[in-house]
Nucleic acid binder design. Structure first.
Length: 486
RNA sequence: CGGGACGUAGCUCAGCUUGGUAGAGCGCCGCGUUUGGGACGCGGAAGUCGCAGGUUCAAGUCCUGUCGUCCCGACCA
């Protein structure tokens, strides 16, 4: 963005995105009525428009879980302290951010209860009761719930003390099945990110230091934000037998011996919505991917004192589109059309349908795309009223593709394959984006890079051929994306 | 958790230095005229100045504490 353009906000109440991403992000979250701050520190209220985003995320992701054989269930919010303590690494990882219930009414509890920061513990305990035989496996359960982590610094969606997410927990007879499950879900997350959220991501395995406490392996999808920082958007963990051993989850196998199960866990939170907001938004506010948008289209009737026909036409069109499954509303509030255009642009509705006297005369409507700038090629077009449903379907698809293409272009042009040490450190320090390098895989090496530059490995993938670690010069074992992260 | 900034009307902020009866713009409500990119006129409502103490005849203003928000860093799946 040019300096001249940056001086005046394009939209009042929303500062230019390129000037200060943090200020832009917070302003948009509030102004678009996604969230409100609440009287509780670090906790936000998810308003109806924001909850609409979450509902669509849920619907799309849940359908994918169901399609891969998972069922939903619900487990308790509170976890007895003694239960939590059984898996040492896990406890150590979460201890600093667990909130505790110490009293019931005025009576002090004999045992403290943790408010779940995640549910491996309580679910593992139940699995121990439910599983007896290899015939009981696999167990494939997901729950949609809230969790609490006592965070020090919070921001809407990206890091809040209480947040909404889904957590899947599965148990399997063999290590291989657990690994396959972990990778299957990783691919569900990648598919969701790309085809629902219009967000290109890098999927891969986490380094040892970035691994979930108690996991054998953690996999993640990582998106790139406009400031060059990476945002971990979902994780999938292969827990091996660690939790099975801690919580004594065993089964009688076909060969007659008793064995520990292999478990997995995986989660995506409303943090994904933060990634969507930041990656796609522009100087005029939100730009929502159609599949997540609470409203796919808003109809703005333009009425004159002498001609109020547009109002009826708009309502008929709304009913016809709703009938065909579109999420639409008519904005018939007492405001000028220009006011409504600006308002719905801030709130990111993918398509605006204008109906004025001219359109009524010609039995047509005007479709305007939010993802394009005013006057840009293809930003608006006039279509016959009879063909609106088809045109809308087509346009929503095009908006998704365009948002994805723009985000992909950003990711591609901000991913740097680097083999020189100096350039590597410089790009890491300057938040250039995803720095793609050959890496030795040693925790000391990663710690050194973090201390020098603030960047860590986001995730790793196989190294082809032979190379030297870009940071320390030892023999490289993997390829890694380094970046500073949220 | 460390460093910095800020809490005054729904929002953005002025007023604080030098203590003396609470201000503006936008928004909101009513009526009328309007409506193809944030309309206009007239009238109106709205704030225990984040909260709690203290100093003072008198505190939005000075002092202490506390809660919250933002930024930078540390921490964090």
């Amino acid at each position: 963005m040019s300096a001249e353009l940056s001086k005046q906000p394009v939209v009042k109440e929303v500062p230019p995105k390129g000037d200060d991403l943090s200020a832009w992000y917070t302003a948009v979250c509030l102004r678009a009525e996604l969230v409100s701050y609440s009287p509780v520190r670090g906790c936000v209220v998810l308003r109806p428009y924001g909850f609409g985003l979450w509902e669509n995320l849920q619907r799309e992701l849940d359908a994918r879980f169901k399609a891969t054989g998972h069922e939903n269930a619900y487990f308790p919010l509170l976890i007895p302290e003694s239960l939590l303590m059984k898996e040492a690494e896990h406890v150590e990882g979460f201890a600093p951010e667990v909130a505790w219930v110490t009293h019931g009414g005025s009576e002090k509890l004999t045992e403290r209860l943790a408010i779940r920061p995640t549910s491996e513990v309580i679910i593992g305990t139940m699995y121990a009761q439910w599983i007896e035989s290899h015939r009981d496996l696999p167990i494939l359960i997901n729950q949609w719930c809230n969790v609490v982590r006592w965070e020090k610094a919070t921001r809407p969606f990206l890091r809040t003390m209480e947040f909404l997410w889904q957590e899947g927990h599965t148990a399997h007879a063999t290590a291989q099945q657990a690994r396959e499950e972990t990778l299957k879900i990783l691919d569900v997350y990648r598919d969701f990110a790309e085809n629902v959220a219009a967000l290109p991501v890098y999927a891969g395995v986490k380094s040892a230091s970035e691994r979930f406490p108690g996991a054998e392996e953690t996999y993640s999808i990582e998106a790139l934000m406009p400031d060059g920082k990476a945002l971990q958007s979902a994780t999938s963990h292969d827990l091996g037998q660690n939790f099975a051993k801690a919580y004594d989850i065993t089964f009688a196998d076909a060969d007659g011996t008793t064995k520990h199960v292999y478990t997995t866990s995986w989660g995506m939170s409303w943090r994904m919505l933060g990634a969507v907001i930041m990656a796609h938004g522009d100087d005029r506010g939100l730009r929502l991917p159609p599949k997540l948008a609470p409203l796919e289209a808003v109809i703005v009737p333009i009425v004159k004192a002498s001609d109020r026909r547009a109002l009826d036409v708009a309502e008929q069109l709304r009913a016809a589109l709703a009938e065909r499954g579109f999420r639409v509303r008519v904005d018939d509030r007492d405001q000028t059309p220009g006011w409504k255009y600006a308002e719905w642009e801030i709130r990111g509705v993918p398509v605006r349908i204008e109906i004025g006297p001219r359109d009524v005369e010609s039995a047509s409507v005007t479709l305007v795309r939010r993802d394009k700038r005013k006057g840009e090629e293809g930003a608006s077009r006039n279509v016959p009223t009879s063909g609106v449903a088809e045109a809308l379907r087509e346009t929503l698809g095009a908006v998704h593709e365009n948002l994805f293409a723009q985000a992909k272009e950003f990711l591609t042009t901000h991913t740097f394959a680097v083999s020189e040490r100096e350039e590597f450190l410089e790009r890491c320090s300057s938040r250039a984006g995803m720095i793609d390098v050959a890496w030795c895989g040693r925790p000391e090496c990663e710690a050194f890079v973090k201390a020098q530059t603030g960047a860590t490995t986001r995730n790793l993938r196989a190294l082809e051929g032979q190379a030297r670690c870009v940071a320390c010069g030892e023999s490289a074992r993997v390829r890694a994306y380094f970046a500073q992260s949220y």
